[in-house]
Design a protein around this nucleic acid. Structure first.
Length: 273
DNA sequence: GGACCATGTCTAC
DNA sequence: TAGACCTGGTCCC
């Protein structure tokens, strides 16, 4: 279950595995069947990501647009591929690799203009090149610095920042000692600059290691010494899904509450208004 | 085997 | 803001 780093990593892996040979495209589940038949046997001209959206190009035929949503999963591996089950929406197959996509919110064949429209409705993405068109973090700051919405909700809004999900929102706010209930227009410019720079750093690490680690090296002994992690996001974190456990730094009990339709986690001791 | 939960987004009201 | 949607893992009976 992905945040932006997962999708960027997936794009990299697809480029690595499916770059040059014709790709067999199939939809064992059936819901991508017609499009799969159209693309079957073509050579892809590359995958890329914007936020949590994945695009794989097939020349004049268009782009496969994938959004995993909350439940979507990708299995990627070396051939031979396992027998396809009827939950596999999309299978890509080459001589050496396979990819199975299950449970995505979106898996559709789209045109160039449709792809462009998706880019335009998404905010800047910490993982896209700083010089990519429209990827200026200033756009996000312009929205945030005028907003009366909580910073925790703003960080999750893909129109404002693309790619941040529930783990990175909780962790980046902790790392900067920011109370999640502060509103956007009360953030200082320096705080925003630090948040953006940290997201770039953390999410790049997330792509590299294919997991979310946010605990600073000097705090790792404390993190490892406390109660064991209970979640499955894959890395070491300060607050995400650590409700009622003691904070790694100050020992205060981590709190949780719903915010912007998701469970928020924070340390009331370290994150003060 | 069933209930419940999960890193998300869209639509109807 | 509630509900729908997509699937799999975990826990409990």
């Amino acid at each position: 279950m992905p945040e932006g780093h997962t999708i960027h990593r997936l794009a990299q892996d697809l480029n690595h595995r499916f770059a040059t040979e014709p790709v067999r495209v199939a939809s064992p589940q059936g819901r991508f069947g017609e499009s799969a038949a159209l693309l079957d046997g073509q050579v892809t001209d590359g995958a890329s990501a914007h936020g949590k959206h994945l695009f794989a190009g097939f020349g004049d035929s268009g782009w496969i647009h994938v959004h995993l949503g909350l439940f979507g999963k990708v299995a990627l591996g070396d051939t031979p591929a396992p027998p396809p089950t009827d939950t596999v929406r999309l299978r890509l197959l080459s001589d050496t690799s396979y990819m199975d996509l299950r449970g995505p919110t979106t898996c559709a064949l789209i045109t160039g203009p449709e792809k462009q429209a998706i880019h335009e409705r998404l905010g800047p993405d910490p993982l896209r090149p700083p010089d990519a068109p429209g990827n200026d973090p200033e756009r996000a700051w312009a929205r945030i610095s005028r907003s009366r919405t909580t910073v925790a909700a703003l960080l999750m809004d893909q129109k404002i920042i693309a790619g941040v999900g529930n783990v990175y929102r909780a962790e980046v706010l902790f790392r900067h000692g920011i109370d999640p209930y502060r509103v956007g227009r009360d953030l200082t410019r320096a705080e925003w600059d630090a948040i953006w720079a940290d997201l770039v750093l953390l999410m790049r690490e997330g792509v590299r290691h294919n997991r979310i680690d946010t605990v600073r090296p000097e705090h790792l002994p404390e993190a490892m010494g406390r109660a064991p992690r209970v979640d499955d996001h894959g890395g070491e974190v300060y607050v995400y899904r650590r409700a009622t456990m003691p904070c790694h730094l100050c020992g205060t009990e981590i709190r949780t509450a719903p915010l912007a339709a998701r469970n928020l986690f924070w340390c009331p001791g370290c994150q003060r208004a």
